[in-house]
Design a protein around this nucleic acid. Structure first.
Lengths: 234, 234
DNA sequence: CGTTATGTTGACCTCCTTCAAAGGCTGTGG
DNA sequence: CCACAGCCTTTGAAGGAGGTCAACATAACG
């Protein structure tokens, strides 16, 4: 997790200015001048796989936007297990709760190597007050969190395990051409769907036998969109 | 669903000004003058049990705050079933998605007779721009929606049905003295927990036999807080 | 008082979990 | 380069939890 936006060489800073994510994330609508004055304390972090962005219950000084990779938000359960409540992909925001002065509500962990922007809460609060565009973008991000949470309830926590798994694969963009697709581990799949690791493994094996997913040399390549969709709506 | 805030007699309007909910909902921090000028188009509706505030997919001109009663947000599933994704109690807000210009994402139905304030989106958008206090309250309401959705994932959609039911009863305030407690029907319980009506019924019957809940003349009165908590964390 | 929704209970079977063991992949050290 | 350890995945067998279908009871309602 090495920062580079505020590095002397501005390694990531230049990336920030050119960042295509910026166009549709929080800073859409700001002029280059505004960005240059405001971007100062923003760091561009590289988050290696399996490392945590922040931990549940920690004080929340920063907000994060995902630039690349895949980040999971999980909560620890009273019985020792854990449940993943959201998956963040490029363009998504983590740690919004910092804006209402709370601690982090989840533990954020990179499922795959990720690049994120780490923004101090004061910066966002200030932009929220001064820039209507940023303000509107913030509301949209918040609504997006709600929508994703709803999707986890209705699609990933409802119905038989097989249907849920099909919906998960479709959610991950498994059948969409052009989307970099990362297959989570079986344990994460279990935590995503509220089932055990073994059941997740069995269902994936069955999908492979039925030709719903294909893999070559250990990596998954192709998914049968129609077949999965049929299962998903069952 | 008869309005009264904008009625000639201002039946509900007076209620609005005196509304104790207002103190902790959206309009905290506004002066009486500000309220009087802004409150004009706000209606105070009475929503009889089982009637809908709005339907999923409808255009979303209004935002609602719950003053009394209990409101469920449900979504229809592709297979014909339905899933409840949130329960709104006094102080909660419904229809926030209207602020990012979308249609309603859920169908809102009163589980029990409810009083709600119906606020045009333009009013909220205007207040959001002009009043920092309202703006902050809005962010908090949005975060609250996220928190409640997370709770539905981690508490009501995870683990064995028995544990989920115990968590639901605790969530409903079944064991809290002083809270008006409404026991949902078995079908709603099923839609809340992602289980069938029959299973919900069986579990409730079992809870009664074990003395975890008591009922008199058809209405539930007492809940064993400790017993339910023990089950909830299993 | 019949009629209709809602709750309860039983029998059966499927799905999922649990516990256990074996198989593969990766990295490390000899 | 191979051997071995460690981790993740896969698969098996058994039991339990929950779904399904159906009958029945109870309560709400005209």
């Amino acid at each position: 997790m090495k920062p580079n936006c505020t590095n002397p060489e501005w390694i990531g800073r230049s990336k920030c200015v050119a960042c295509d994510v910026r166009n549709f994330v929080l800073f859409a609508g700001l002029s280059v001048n505004e960005l240059n004055t405001i971007l100062q304390p923003i760091d561009n972090l590289h988050v290696p796989q399996h490392s945590a962005l922040y931990e549940q219950g920690d004080p929340a000084p920063h907000l994060f936007t995902v630039r690349s990779g895949l980040v999971k938000l999980k909560v620890d359960l009273p019985n020792g297990g854990q449940r993943i409540v959201r998956l963040l992909r490029p363009g998504d925001v983590a740690g919004l709760e910092t804006l209402v002065g709370e601690r982090y509500h989840h533990t954020a962990i990179a499922l795959h190597d990720a690049d994120v922007c780490r923004i101090p809460r004061e910066v966002v609060l200030h932009l929220d007050r001064t820039s209507p565009a940023v303000h509107q973008a913030l509301l949209q991000r918040w609504q997006r969190s709600v929508d994703q949470a709803d999707h986890f309830i209705t699609a990933l926590s409802t119905g038989p395990a097989e249907s849920r798994m099909a919906r998960l694969l479709l959610t991950l963009g498994c059948a969409n051409a052009g989307v970099e697709f990362v297959m989570p581990g079986r344990e994460d799949m279990g935590a995503l769907l509220g089932i055990t690791t073994e059941t997740a493994s069995r269902i994936m094996a069955e999908f492979r036998r039925r030709g719903l997913v294909h893999m070559e040399k250990g990596t998954y390549v192709d998914c049968n969109h129609d077949g999965l969709t049929r299962l998903a709506s069952a």
